[in-house]
Amino acid sequence: MKFFNEKYSPLTDSVYFLKARLGDIVAEFLQWQKPLEINENRELQKTELTGDLEANLLQLLPISVTEIRRFLFLKTTNGWTAMISNTILGTDGAAPSVVSERLRCELVRATIVPDATMFEYANPLATTADAKFRYVYAMKEGKWEFHQHGPPLDFEDLARYENERMIKNKLDASLLIKYLMNLGIDYNTKTYYQPDSNIKGILISKEGPMYSNDKALTLQAAQNYYNQQ
């Protein structure tokens, strides 16, 4: 599936997962966001979602060019909660990282796009600074490059990093999905985001004035945005 084969790109280019309950994550997020100066003239509106995965993803529209205006929190069938936001560049990591630190819960990033595959894992409760953060990237920035930082997790395919000659294949979508499964995240299955509960997710939206340089785009307009610049 890879999140519907880019059908909902850029929304689903990066998905973050926090190992905490949906309600706890949303409560902590709102406690952090409400006092911020950026939200002085905005109301943070909370909407409980009962639809399927695709219907809930569409609640992120319109897509913003500048400011993140919508945050989607998706319950799963186990202890992880997915987090996605609505900007043209895909989900920014700042908000998930802050919530992870505040709740002291594990955080995972999964990015799959044509020019990059990225895996990140953070554990604020790790006993050493080095063990708190691990990332592995294969990305194209002019040319393909491979980067890693932090102690490898025990399920990683280190031989592949060492022996695979094509840099983009040192970490590709299939390997990333295997890593996620090892952490209990069934990223590639729609029903994973359809828990047996009435509330499937929560949308937090900023209601109020937009910045003058921002734009609100349809999904199709966002997908063609950089081709028209």
Rank of each mutant, 00 (worst) to 15 (best):
M1I: 15
E6N: 14
K7T: 12
S14G: 09
V15C: 01
V15Y: 01
L18D: 00
K19S: 05
A20G: 02
R21A: 14
D24N: 10
D24T: 00
I25L: 02
V26I: 04
V26F: 03
E28I: 00
E28N: 00
L30C: 08
P35A: 09
L36K: 13
L36P: 01
I38N: 06
R42H: 14
R42G: 11
R42T: 15
Q45F: 11
K46T: 15
L49P: 04
T50E: 15
N56F: 10
N56H: 09
L58T: 05
L58G: 02
Q59M: 10
Q59T: 10
Q59Y: 07
L60G: 03
I68M: 10
R69F: 04
G79H: 04
T81N: 07
A82W: 06
T87P: 02
T87S: 15
V99T: 08
E101D: 13
L103P: 00
E106I: 00
A110Q: 02
T111V: 03
I112H: 02
I112L: 05
L125M: 13
A129D: 14
D130M: 12
A131C: 04
A131R: 07
A131G: 08
Y135T: 01
V136H: 12
Y137C: 09
M139I: 10
M139G: 11
K140M: 02
E141F: 13
F146T: 00
D154M: 07
F155D: 09
F155T: 03
A159E: 14
A159K: 09
A159I: 06
E162C: 08
N169C: 07
N169M: 10
K170C: 02
L175S: 13
I177R: 07
I177A: 09
K178L: 07
K178G: 08
Y179R: 01
N182A: 08
G184N: 08
I185T: 03
I185P: 03
I185K: 02
I185L: 03
I185Q: 04
D186V: 07
Y192R: 11
Y193A: 04
P195C: 12
D196T: 15
D196Q: 15
K200L: 09
L203P: 08
S205E: 15
K206N: 10
K206R: 14
E207K: 13
M210N: 14
M210K: 12
M210L: 13
Y211E: 15
N213E: 14
A216L: 15
T218K: 07
L219S: 03
Q223A: 09
Q223L: 05
Q228K: 11
